[in-house]
Write a protein that binds this DNA or RNA. Structure first.
Lengths: 202, 202
DNA sequence: GTCTATAGCACGATAGAC
DNA sequence: GTCTATCGTGCTATAGAC
């Protein structure tokens, strides 16, 4: 950004590596139960070195969680998820599938995101954005009801919670070494949710 | 238990009240992020008073979580869940419905149980028992495949994880003041999961 | 960019009076 | 059965040398 040449953004890469190590530990032991000493040990540095790359523990949390949330929010603006591109139910299926994919590719970040309790301003803001995502998904299901793709008295928010609950539960048990291929797991989950959706009434 | 008369178990009631207040806070702020000072404040006593009723913070966790786990394990021995009482798929549906009911009636305990990370011996033991429950459910689905109630190449563990993930996600959003009646929420979830099950292949 | 050392604080737990 | 007071520990974060 300044007039200096050679903007190699070297510090940026290290901030990334610190966050990756931190979220690996957050995934296994929880955010609150993970100390910066443990993060530092995983990187073979001391705790103080971390503060060169991040402003503090909560800044690391924000770094990773914002990436996961950004990916999810991006799904809503990807063209297959947009009105007029397909039927509402087909758009919902796209959002669901992308949500599953993001859960797999950003496993730790999404898992930590889903377990935040709202204890700080940052956490409350994250939860707000997550709720907005769920509401956007419910809006699509509402269109599906209006278009006659779902039974008349379906409750879009309730069905969204069940679909997203199923999708989000992926991060609780899926790991990269899962016996079945990732694509098969995702397609099974999508088929499971979509047939559950079509059969539900309330 | 001793020879004294009048076994009023008064301390037992208080231990229950302490645990109830504690799990309410655990549900909202997380187990690690909740201090015994907060629990004491909710009860209008001081932190030291809690130690008369429980051996410590982890003893309170064990008290509530063991009750939730005991209820879930009990489902597996209730007669409608037993082999020979119905078809495997009907037995699985019973386990699923009871799991949802227990999630509602023991909301905080189940929510906390599901979020444990395995940081202590107690937590690891709890996770072990939870995994045994999931395996028992998967065994029923395995019978369902053998009986031809599910497609031949279905993966029982994968389908169990999706069914239970859906059921367990209930505690993330359901609250006693939900607009829809509890029975309707449960039946919607059961129908959602069962039709998802029957349509899934992998 | 990483280190040692430590400040500052919050927490779980205990002792002992009442 | 609950209190006040305190101990010991582990944590986030910072200061300053290298």
């Amino acid at each position: 950004m300044t007039s200096k040449r050679l903007e190699r953004a070297k510090g940026s890469y290290d901030a990334e590596a610190v966050a990756r190590a931190a979220f690996d530990l957050f995934l296994h032991h929880g955010y609150n139960a993970t100390s910066l000493d443990q993060v530092a040990a995983a990187l073979n540095v001391t705790k103080a070195a971390i503060y060169y790359h991040h402003a503090g523990k909560e800044a690391i949390l924000a770094y990773g969680v914002d990436r996961a949330l950004g990916s999810l929010e991006g799904v809503l603006t990807e063209s297959p998820a947009l009105p007029g591109q397909a039927t509402p139910l087909q758009r919902f299926e796209y959002v669901l599938r992308r949500t599953l994919e993001i859960g797999m590719s950003h496993l730790a970040e999404v898992a930590v995101l889903l377990r935040l309790n709202g204890n700080t301003d940052l956490e409350r803001d994250v939860i707000k954005r997550r709720r907005a995502f769920d509401r956007a998904a419910a809006d699509i299901l509402e269109e599906a009801v209006a278009a006659g793709e779902l039974p008349e008295h379906s409750d879009p928010m309730l069905l969204t919670r069940m679909s997203m609950g199923l999708a989000n539960s992926l991060v609780e048990w899926y790991r990269p070494d899962h016996p079945r291929p990732a694509s098969e797991v995702i397609e099974t989950a999508v088929r499971f949710a979509m047939s559950g959706l079509r059969r539900s009434v309330a």
